[in-house]
Simulated assay, not measured.
Amino acid sequence: MRREKKEQILCVLAGKIKGILLNNGLDFERLQEIRLREGQPLYVRYEGREMMFSHLITKEELRETMEYIGNYSLYAYEHEMRQGFLTIDGGHRVGISGKIIPEEGHVRNFQYISSVNIRVSHEISGCADVVFPMVLEKGELCHTMIISPPGCGKTTMLRDMVRQISDGNQYLRGMNVGVVDERSEIGGCFQGVPQNHIGKRTDILDNCPKAEGMMMMIRSMSPQVLAVDEIGTRHDVEAVSYAMHCGVTMLATVHGTSLEEIREKPLFKHYWEGKYFKRYIVLGPMGRTGSLQGVYNERGKLLCS
């Protein structure tokens, strides 16, 4: 049986930290982030606001927490740690920083860990309902880009779109979806199994570079729809264009504050000029995850807000 979110989080925290959270009666469904920095106060992000506790994080508490996170075998997670994060049961992402061990210009591993950031995974089922009528044209799903600043819900929106497309909804029949999840945030995979609900017709490549993963998905799984989070390199952009030319419908997210900002960026300018994406969903910070600023077509016309 899958453990509740509260248990998933508490079981990886050092005893003193666990006690502080319990004694303050926090609702773990509203908890967004827990930061542990050696010698600094315990920090929690809760319902969009900061909470600082007087307790200072010790080296021993960081060590104890990392032992729980790695199930006393951190060497087994060496590949993930090179990227600066681990994913634990429930799909919660644990970011780490400190002193690294370099090797030929790359990160081999961490020598000392001085900070841990636990980002609590949240699914908001149905958050994509409002945009679905807008991302279809003549009954067909459009190439869609989701734009938002960090922490404003683009991955949450993408995840719910993937789930609904995969399972089918009132607007379209279920379709085969391929997800390339480089940062383990869409599916929140733990030991290769998605912890988030991403649909019954979805295949996922976890912890895989986006550009390479998109090519692998097209060759091996023949997806009708391909979803990727946070495209941001020339290789990502080229792979997205290739996928579109292969007849795959693309769902992608990018960091940005507006459609105007994205269409002026040199990396994405040819998307706009070539009208590659037919829909742009813009999210913004309005006090809750996934606050819709607007949905635009390929000409920049506002369809809904």
Rank of each mutant, 00 (worst) to 15 (best):
294 G>M: 08
298 E>L: 03
272 W>E: 09
260 E>G: 15
272 W>I: 00
278 K>H: 11
298 E>G: 11
300 G>Q: 07
290 G>A: 10
262 I>F: 03
287 G>K: 03
264 E>K: 08
293 Q>R: 15
291 S>F: 13
272 W>G: 07
271 Y>S: 00
295 V>F: 00
255 H>S: 01
290 G>I: 07
262 I>W: 05
274 G>I: 10
288 R>Q: 13
279 R>T: 07
280 Y>K: 10
288 R>G: 08
296 Y>G: 03
257 T>V: 13
292 L>D: 01
256 G>I: 01
296 Y>S: 02
298 E>C: 12
291 S>T: 14
262 I>V: 15
289 T>I: 15
277 F>V: 05
264 E>G: 04
299 R>M: 12
261 E>I: 01
271 Y>W: 15
296 Y>P: 09
265 K>A: 09
257 T>W: 08
294 G>S: 12
265 K>T: 12
278 K>R: 14
274 G>P: 00
290 G>F: 04
254 V>I: 15
295 V>L: 04
298 E>F: 08
256 G>L: 01
290 G>K: 08
272 W>N: 06
289 T>L: 08
268 F>D: 00
283 L>W: 01
286 M>C: 13
285 P>G: 11
270 H>N: 13
254 V>D: 00
289 T>S: 11
275 K>S: 11
265 K>W: 04
267 L>R: 14
264 E>L: 00
285 P>M: 11
288 R>T: 11
265 K>V: 03
279 R>V: 08
299 R>F: 15
281 I>E: 01
294 G>I: 09
280 Y>F: 15
254 V>Y: 02
281 I>F: 05
296 Y>R: 06
255 H>K: 02
256 G>E: 05
264 E>N: 09
283 L>S: 01
268 F>R: 00
295 V>G: 09
297 N>P: 12
262 I>G: 04
296 Y>H: 07
263 R>N: 04
257 T>Y: 13
270 H>C: 08
266 P>T: 06
300 G>E: 03
297 N>M: 10
257 T>N: 13
290 G>H: 07
285 P>H: 14
287 G>V: 06
284 G>L: 06
269 K>S: 12
262 I>P: 01
261 E>H: 00
269 K>F: 04
274 G>D: 12
294 G>Y: 09
273 E>W: 02
281 I>S: 03
280 Y>W: 14
259 L>A: 09
268 F>G: 02
282 V>A: 06
288 R>C: 09
261 E>F: 02
272 W>M: 06
295 V>M: 05
266 P>C: 05
280 Y>I: 07
274 G>Y: 14
296 Y>V: 08
257 T>K: 13
292 L>T: 08
298 E>Y: 13
285 P>D: 15
282 V>F: 00
282 V>T: 09
268 F>E: 06
261 E>A: 04
272 W>C: 03
261 E>Y: 02
267 L>I: 14
284 G>A: 11
265 K>M: 07
255 H>T: 02
283 L>H: 06
286 M>L: 14
259 L>V: 07
289 T>V: 15
274 G>C: 13
259 L>P: 03
291 S>M: 10
282 V>I: 07
299 R>I: 10
281 I>G: 00
273 E>C: 05
